[in-house]
Design a protein around this nucleic acid. Structure first.
Lengths: 210, 210
DNA sequence: AATATGGATATTGGATACAGAATACATTAT
DNA sequence: ATAATGTATTCTGTATCCAATATCCATATT
């Protein structure tokens, strides 16, 4: 038996809003009204307010003084910036992970799950398992700051903007294998480079489909 | 005439709490009660709640489910981590800044102000001008993500833990000059190295006085 | 007709009130 | 006496209420 993961209303609202933004149900630049969202989600305005605030800090919403919040519009520059910084930080995480007793077996197993998802063209499974892969590396880097920032970035850009095309997924698989190889051989700089390349290539594909 | 910078109660509470933590008025591990803080600051619980939430995301407070928030206790590992990640990010910022049309004149002027503060042994002025110096570089790096993360880090560790000793301030001045030199010569890697060294040395001094 | 002014409306920010969860304490049973 | 259970208290989370502010629209003024 596992402990029950209680979720506050606020966190549920955050999840709902994030999902809606990622789905495209809430479009870029759209104005959100506390009461409307509250009514739709059948909660009071209070948790919605706190959710707005949280998502503003995450960079997904923009709030102006006493004015409605709007869904952040991402420019090409924003996306470039996002991926460049992410590449640096994920690279650092991979480099650090390669120097620790990271559970390579776990990584390999996740990678197999990813390959299954890709073979089945199951985009949803791909997204979940891919995130898992990255998170194992982040965790092994053993840096609270790095983890927190990577977390913010992972949630910080609506992925719906780029469709997960088949082509992209298989490229990803190959790149993950490069990362695993570098980690196994405990080659710090190779791990960094492999990860940076992986993220940079994602950026390119993202922008091409944008 | 400048526009009046209205500040929400929430933001004022955030500022008060941060200051209290940095001063040591709120000690590591201390439990905070929403209503107590609200009463002390003569506001309602609501802005206090949101301030708690914001400071939790900043890493200064820890909140447990339905339980009081506590002031984060920083271990030596946390401090090492903090400075290491900051070194990486500030290094990146300096490297980027060196490749842009950064206002070197402004940097030099700030540096002069820092030198005055150091000569006068005015710790408060030193803290303000030093932050200014760093922020100019961050801004020139032209990365919203980097800026946001550096901002979080700058506010993320209570500086009261280490006294600003005279010795440290003068070392800082010399290091800043190295950074300026590298930026003037538009030497990207040199700028990065100079900044990384600067932050790493700060860490050492911080830990020695800890 | 164009611009400014004043008031109505919409919406947010903050205070208060109420409900639910966690802890501490007392009481009971073994 | 010790452990388990029930109860009271404290504090947090959510809802509702009130006040302040911004926007919108109608009207007046030049």
């Amino acid at each position: 038996m596992k402990p029950i993961a209680k979720q506050s209303t606020r966190d549920q609202v955050i999840a709902s809003l994030r999902k809606a933004i990622f789905n495209g149900d809430l479009k870029d630049g759209e104005e959100l009204i506390q009461e409307e969202i509250a009514k739709k989600l059948n909660v009071s305005r209070m948790p919605v307010r706190e959710a707005f605030y949280a998502l503003e800090r995450e960079g997904l919403l923009i709030t102006n003084q006493n004015r409605r919040v709007t869904v952040k519009e991402f420019t090409v520059d924003d996306i470039n910036d996002h991926y460049d910084i992410r590449a640096m930080m994920e690279g650092e995480a991979a480099a650090r992970a390669s120097q620790t007793e990271i559970d390579v077996q776990e990584l390999k197993e996740i990678q197999q799950d990813i390959e299954i998802a890709v073979a089945e063209k199951n985009v949803n499974d791909y997204i979940i398992t891919n995130e898992h892969f990255h998170r194992v590396i982040w965790k092994s880097a053993k840096s609270a700051r790095l983890l927190s920032f990577l977390d913010q970035m992972w949630n910080g850009l609506p992925p719906h903007l780029a469709e997960m095309v088949e082509d992209q997924m298989s490229k990803s698989v190959a790149e993950h294998n490069e990362i695993i190889k570098a980690i196994i051989s405990k080659n710090e700089e190779q791990a960094r480079i492999a990860m940076v390349n992986h993220v940079r290539r994602s950026k390119k594909d993202f922008l091409e489909n944008y």
